[in-house]
């Protein structure tokens, strides 16, 4: 062993420490993606598969009904829907699988005995998740453009608030999933993907509330994503910026995010009280 004297190391200023911790978490997850190429499927292969599936469905139905404006709009609804859906999907999957990575690698206990705060952990994972989201949504948008000549940027700047609302919605769903994993352990992991199969048909991704069976419609109307996707369709129709739908979606999303935060905080307290950390050590 080299005889090194122990010296007090220099620390960053206190104000920077939290940002450095968030950056450290984001960087750690960048390494995970870099060293696990199969995880690129989420941001490359599945987006292309989704685009081909829904784009071709639209093209087929148009070909059956003859080229009319309603049919063409249907194709655009499907393609804009799948592009925007991937905002929710990528935001949700990146945060929930990022958290699960810490449980899979049994790193949770080590993280919990550092100055890292719970919100900083989520922020670091979400920060890297944003990079994945840009990749995933970029791939869908590019595939829609090259395969079906659908340019999502034609929807204009009004698309930005829709994307922001869906991003926050995706994170809210992820926090809910993280809360369930804290409570029920890795058995709840299936929800990370499964919950999206519930949100997709109910969340108005491709069609308005009225298209659903009557008894499901009230549930769909309550979901903020329904109003965000409805706003997206109004933009495709060339109408003015649908502020009403956007406001409903924004308020609903904020309420959902607050509820998800409260839920995950409650589950975290339970996690500490019942000593569930020993599941991961």
């Amino acid at each position: 062993m080299t005889a090194h004297r122990f010296e007090a190391p220099a620390h960053v200023p206190r104000g920077l420490a939290a940002w450095l911790r968030i950056w450290a978490v984001a960087r750690r997850h960048a390494y995970v993606l870099y060293r696990s190429p199969h995880r690129l499927f989420d941001v490359t292969v599945w987006p292309i598969v989704d685009t081909v599936l829904f784009g071709s469905l639209g093209v087929y139905f148009v070909s059956q009904g003859g080229p009319n404006s309603a049919g063409q709009a249907g194709v655009a609804y499907l393609l804009s829907g799948i592009v925007l859906w991937h905002v929710v999907y990528q935001a949700q999957i990146a945060v929930s699988t990022g958290f699960m990575e810490e449980t899979w690698s049994r790193n949770l206990l080590s993280l919990m005995v550092t100055p890292l705060r719970e919100l900083e952990l989520v922020a670091g994972i979400a920060l890297f998740g944003l990079a994945k989201l840009v990749m995933g949504v970029g791939v869908v948008a590019l595939a829609a453009f090259t395969l079906y000549a659908f340019d999502v940027t034609d929807l204009g700047l009004a698309l930005l608030p829709v994307i922001a609302i869906l991003l926050l919605g995706g994170w809210a769903i992820a926090l809910f999933v993280v809360g369930l994993i804290l409570r029920f352990g890795n058995g709840a992991e299936a929800l990370a993907w499964g919950i999206m199969f519930v949100v997709m048909p109910l969340g108005g991704v491709f069609y308005p509330v009225e298209a659903l069976p009557a008894f499901i419609q009230p549930i769909s109307a309550l979901l903020p994503t329904t109003h965000a996707f409805a706003a997206g369709r109004e933009l495709i129709d060339g109408g003015p910026v649908p502020w009403g739908e956007l406001a409903l979606a924004a308020i609903g999303t904020l309420v959902a995010a607050a509820a998800a935060l409260a839920f995950v905080a409650w589950m975290l307290r339970l996690f500490r009280r019942r000593g569930y950390v020993t599941r991961y050590s």
Binding site: R21, A24, V25, S105
Partner: peptide, 19 residues
Amino acid sequence: PERLRVGEYLRMYGQLYGL
């Protein structure tokens, strides 16, 4: 943790401790 080199792992924890 898997998928990290020792140096990367220590750097991460060093940053978590504000070094």
